[in-house]
Nucleic acid binder design. Structure first.
Lengths: 241, 241
DNA sequence: CTGCTTTCGCTACGAGTCGTAGCGTAACTG
DNA sequence: CAGTTACGCTACGACTCGTAGCGAAAGCAG
């Protein structure tokens, strides 16, 4: 017996303002295709009915909600579609699979992290660690992050997408913190660009990896006391070098 | 049309020596049951046909092979069963789901990690990091570890099982390294037990989390140069404190 | 206004997996 | 011997996947 789909009032997301462009892939969701079209880039082709920006937002919101409620394993494309008031085919027109959809849905959560510049390197590090811990405490993040990383170990394309959308942008926090500390005189100037980038990478992997492991694997909370001890670990050689 | 199962010679794993006890759960695979049986523990009830230890090994081996070839998402219970030359029901009699099966299949891989005692804390740390990096380079480990951690964020029972079988046992490496360094005089004696345990925890989370993040998320290799710099990070406050 | 193009909601489909049940048989104990 | 448990095998309903086809809607060029 068919008719599994509820009425769901299909007009609920139609006819909305086409303002915010959180659109995942304006030129088609096929990044693995190697420039088959003649025109190189840009050239916003406005032919035919445009894609509903409201549907984009409804889908991404529904994805985050479903992640929080059902977790990674419970999240299905059909579920997201009906929750967003959208047909399943509409999802597949924009994202090739669950993985890419969740990357876009979760990436925005990480944009809220900021480098506060509190006047000392220690205070800045502790503040960022606390922010990251709060982010990892959210159910959407918990459900999505490690599962995405796991999928990324098998799918190079996906891993690249995760890095570009979620991981690498956060390295700005380390760079900003270093710059602020250098301006204060807490840290010396960079010797050369390569060495500086390697140091940023190692500090980033250490902070991100350690906090993730503490929260998501060991399952223990990030207390101010823990943050202080962890910051001790980072500050020792940093201030010395 | 049925007959999807190949002949597979069902006797291939039957009639084998019941020696090695890598058996996952001798008292039944229901750890969530709260001691319903009258007898408290032990009391090896040997009634009826005993479970085939050879089947246990065949299943765990097949699980590791399938993980390496197909990854976490490609691993199905039916696939493991036919690869092990065993009925699917036999799997479900021992493990309630894929998650628990993979925990047992992967746990043994981590037992190979050893604390070498090379004469200095730095050499010991670098050796353990290199071992861990090698372990994380194996496809079975890559496919399983992060996926298990991800599932564990939703399933408390599973997370406990992961910690008890895979994660926590490796803390011995940190304890052994500390003890060796203390014997050499590189480190001072412990003040109290609580403080020592917290320090072991934080060092463990830092090493495990950072190396995992570097290899599995950033996807960059663990070079001797990287290991040296990372060890610098750990040694600074350790030797000072 | 009339075509032309693309998106949309909806339905339907084959393929695959899940976890369970039932059956007859095998293995081991007392 | 009877009693008990594990095993291989088959079959099942429920579910998800990703795709195809349809008619209708929403834009743009003329």
């Amino acid at each position: 017996m068919p008719a599994a789909q509820p009425p769901a009032s299909p007009d609920s997301v139609e006819r909305a303002e086409p303002t915010a462009r959180t659109c995942p892939d304006p030129a088609g969701a096929a990044p693995h295709r190697a420039a088959a079209t003649p025109e190189p880039a840009g050239a916003a082709r406005a032919k035919g009915r445009p894609r509903s920006a409201a549907a984009d937002r409804a889908i991404l919101d529904a994805t985050r909600e479903a992640l929080a409620e059902l977790g990674w394993g419970g999240l299905t494309m059909g579920h997201v579609a009906s929750r967003a008031g959208v047909a399943k085919t509409t999802l597949y027109r924009r994202w090739p699979s669950k993985n890419e959809l969740v990357v876009d849905a979760v990436a925005t959560l990480f944009d809220d992290l900021v480098m506060p510049d509190l006047g000392s390197l220690r205070a800045d590090i502790e503040a960022v660690v606390a922010q990251f811990a709060d982010l990892l405490a959210r159910p959407e993040t918990q459900a999505a992050l490690l599962a995405l990383f796991a999928e990324g170990t098998r799918d190079r394309q996906l891993r690249r997408r995760i890095r570009e959308s979620i991981v690498d942008p956060q390295k700005r926090l380390v760079r900003q913190g270093r710059a602020a500390a250098q301006a204060r005189g807490e840290l010396g100037a960079d010797c050369d660009a390569d060495s500086a980038r390697e140091e940023v990478d190692i500090i980033f992997d250490t902070i991100a990896g350690t906090v993730e492991h503490r929260v998501l694997v060991s399952g223990e909370p990030i207390t101010p006391e823990w943050t202080r001890r962890f910051t001790d670990l980072l500050l020792g050689p940093l201030l010395a070098g």
